[in-house]
Design a protein around this nucleic acid. Structure first.
Lengths: 148, 148
DNA sequence: AGCTTAAATGCAACAGTGTTGCAATTAGGG
DNA sequence: CCCTAATTGCAACACTGTTGCATTTAAGCT
């Protein structure tokens, strides 16, 4: 919820400005990840004009406060739905519709750690992005194949 | 080995040109991932001049043939050391020296699949990048802390 | 409500990254 | 050695991301 994020901003002594509220809202609405200029375009369609520099700075702040995550495979940003859970970002991204879900799975993280450490590597954070089809798109595709 | 990659190029009917050989060699030497313009800069220092457009196209081809992988967290490319193993790219990246190792772990991939599928998501490919310290940098840091 | 001021935004200008179309070059087969 | 399709280089461009500085604004104060 946007309200939660606003509370976090305030609690940390950051101002709740119109641009920040707008970026929060657009990220909240989106099902997919949004790159900085995507956000600018979407807002412009709603008659809201933000300078791209502002958007970059807001996204940087949001990531620092764990209100958003950067999804590397797309270059876009998503709202962080899991609260502060530093160092473990696990996403599944639908290659069809772009839908993104964020998950936490401590077991998988621990196994990744063990895996890396067995090779002398000291893990500090994980990034895991799986690509595939969400249940909706999968169903549609199966139907398609059946018809075709 | 560069020779292996050259054989693959030939086998698929692609020409073995000077630029392609040079990019293969620079990726082979590198311990870290190299972005397109990094490659151009490094080659220039060796007196070899490649147009950046050429480098982009070569990297695109190499990724298609699984001779290289794009490392998303750095935006750079590494030589693919594992042959064709579509859909599972597991890297550990040292945040200190940039060293990259690529691994395969079928067990982890299967668990990721199970994990996603338990949420109705049909996985096709994985990307996993762990960040931390390689054994060398970890040792150095421990020493540092001991002195300091 | 109207001040005040540090924080945040906007602006301008720039640097880096990535793309496209087309002309010139080159690898590799005959 | 020639031929030709494949590849590279070039020019021009579009997009992305950054920096310094002037302007605006949120929020605490009276």
């Amino acid at each position: 919820m946007v309200q939660d994020s606003i509370r976090i901003l305030q609690a940390q002594g950051y101002k709740v400005t119109k641009p920040r509220r707008q970026v929060l809202e657009i990220l909240e609405e989106a099902q997919e990840s949004l790159a900085p200029y995507d956000i600018q375009r979407l807002l412009r369609r709603q008659g809201k004009h933000l300078n791209h520099v502002t958007i970059y700075r807001i996204l940087e702040l949001f990531c620092r406060l764990n209100l958003a995550h950067r999804v590397l495979s797309s270059g876009g940003f998503v709202r962080c739905s899991l609260g502060k859970r530093e160092g473990c970002h696990r996403f599944v991204v639908c290659r069809q519709c772009g839908a993104i879900q964020e998950f936490a799975d401590k077991g998988l993280c621990q196994e990744e750690d063990r895996f890396a450490e067995s090779r002398g590597f000291h893990t500090e954070s994980h990034l895991s992005e799986s690509s595939g089809l969400c249940s909706d798109c999968y169903r549609k595709q199966v139907k398609q194949n059946f018809i075709g």
